[in-house]
């Protein structure tokens, strides 16, 4: 227990890195996923095919491979960024596919008449998505979206193996240095992950109750 308390500052830094990785990747992946979902329901066959290919390739690739690609292949293309940014890219690219499918199921749950009415008053496809379909789609998919957020939060731990000093990396280092306190250290890092994921669940519950009234 002392090993945890003595290293609170190190834990705090790891926690902040994990938090930053989670928040930045969630925002970017949600935007990219929504864009992909719009592509998958668009009237343009090329966009539909591109969206579907992205999802099938990315979600069937292990996240670790996506990390390898970001950390080792991108630098060979003369793209030189920090390990943190590479981690953001890997986590974003991977989870966008899952966000896409959750958002797409929401789009499919919005009656086709809503999109037809939007188009019949002269809104373009992009406008009818942004103004009519997506605002209704998100309301129906809050629980699956939060599922992806929680998975994403935990999956940021893979960044530990790729040079990012986040929670898991901190826990591993401390455990190596304090072999008598391994249990306390790993429990401490588990509590930190819970501190990130549990509020997501509560937030989801609140969001759901709020938007339920509006339906």
């Amino acid at each position: 227990m002392d090993a945890v308390l003595d290293n609170l500052d190190t834990f705090r830094q790891g926690f902040i890195t994990t938090l930053a990785l989670t928040v930045v990747s969630t925002v970017l992946a949600l935007v990219l996923g929504t864009l992909l979902a719009a592509m998958r329901v668009s009237p343009v066959p090329t966009l539909r095919a591109a969206g579907a290919t992205y999802v099938e390739v990315v979600r069937n690739t292990p996240l670790t491979l996506v990390f390898f690609f970001a950390v080792f292949v991108l630098p060979q293309l003369d793209i030189r960024l920090s390990f943190f940014v590479f981690a953001v890219i890997a986590v974003t690219v991977y989870h966008a596919a899952f966000f896409c499918e959750a958002v797409r199921s929401g789009i499919n749950a919005v009656g086709v008449g809503q999109a037809e009415a939007a188009r019949s008053i002269g809104l373009t496809f992009t406008q009818s998505m942004r103004l009519v379909v997506l605002p209704q789609a998100f309301r129906t998919v809050v629980p699956p979206l939060i599922n992806v957020v929680i998975a994403l939060t935990k999956n940021t731990s893979i960044a530990a193996a790729f040079g990012v000093v986040e929670l898991t990396a901190v826990a591993t280092r401390l455990a190596n240095a304090n072999s008598d306190a391994v249990i306390a250290i790993f429990l401490g890092s588990a509590v930190c992950y819970l501190a990130l994921t549990l509020p997501s669940g509560w937030l989801a519950g609140r969001l759901e109750r709020r938007v339920a009234v509006a339906r």
């Binding site: 809503q114 037809e116 008053i121 002269g122 809104l123 309301r139």
Partner: peptide, 30 residues
């Protein structure tokens, strides 16, 4: 389509918008 109005059997009002916003959406955005 903005010049050809359409009224549907199932009304298809935008479910998340007020009556007023349903009517103003097209004039404002289009």
């Amino acid at each position: 389509r903005s010049d050809v109005g359409m009224v549907f059997q199932q009304f298809n009002l935008f479910a998340h918008k007020s009556v007023l916003d349903n009517v103003t959406l097209g004039p404002i955005k289009v």
